[in-house]
């Protein structure tokens, strides 16, 4: 089965029961994406598929044949960290770091959703075409990613600096 992972074409054979997360970690040795709860509750396994964030632990790999998958290993370019990665360092957006790859991929996917005008449960006026990523919207939209160290303030600061209402993208 063929996939495009971090821009590279990859061919892999595996048991049909394999999750996308286990394909990445155990078969392709891309161990950046983390297995926290393995049931879609923590978000540590979040990756981007054709630009959209998903929980790779709940995804059967076979369903994602032919798709373009981006993991934390694919965020940097030319030896330079992604601006969001730099902001996480700057703002102490982690302590142990286990949730960080999922937080990064989730935030990048979330920013795309905001750019496309996708509302959240907090969006007051559903008829508006655009979304303003303020503090409450950001926290709501990132609620699928848990951080048990409690680095949320730093995470919110890093995402706000990179993608927030005041950031220039």
């Amino acid at each position: 089965m063929r996939f495009t992972i971090n821009g590279r074409d990859v061919e892999a054979e595996f048991d049909l029961r394999t999750s996308l997360l286990d394909l990445l970690r155990e078969h392709l040795h891309l161990t950046g994406s983390k297995k926290g709860c393995n049931q879609g509750a923590c978000g540590a396994c979040t990756v981007l598929v054709d630009g959209e964030r998903i929980n790779s632990c709940l995804a059967l790999a076979v369903q994602y044949q032919g798709r373009s998958i981006l993991t934390v290993e694919g965020l940097s370019a030319g030896g330079e960290l992604h601006p969001l990665q730099r902001a996480f360092v700057e703002h102490d957006g982690f302590q142990c770091g286990y949730c960080t790859p999922g937080q990064l991929c989730s935030a990048i996917g979330m920013a795309g959703e905001v750019d496309r005008g996708i509302p959240s449960v907090l969006t007051a006026d559903l008829s508006r075409e655009t979304v303003v990523l303020d503090y409450d919207e950001l926290r709501e939209r990132m609620s699928g990613n848990l951080c048990r160290c409690g680095a949320y303030n730093g995470i919110v600061a890093a995402i706000t600096e990179t993608f927030g209402a005041e950031a220039t993208r």
Binding site: G117, T123, L126
Partner: peptide, 26 residues
């Protein structure tokens, strides 16, 4: 996110957005 759902049946947009996480809704 569908424009017709949001304007004709906002209860449906809001119900979906109240459920799960961004990742799972995708």
């Amino acid at each position: 996110a569908d424009r017709a759902v949001r304007t004709r049946f906002p209860v449906l947009s809001r119900a979906i957005l109240a459920g799960a996480s961004g990742q799972i809704r995708n």
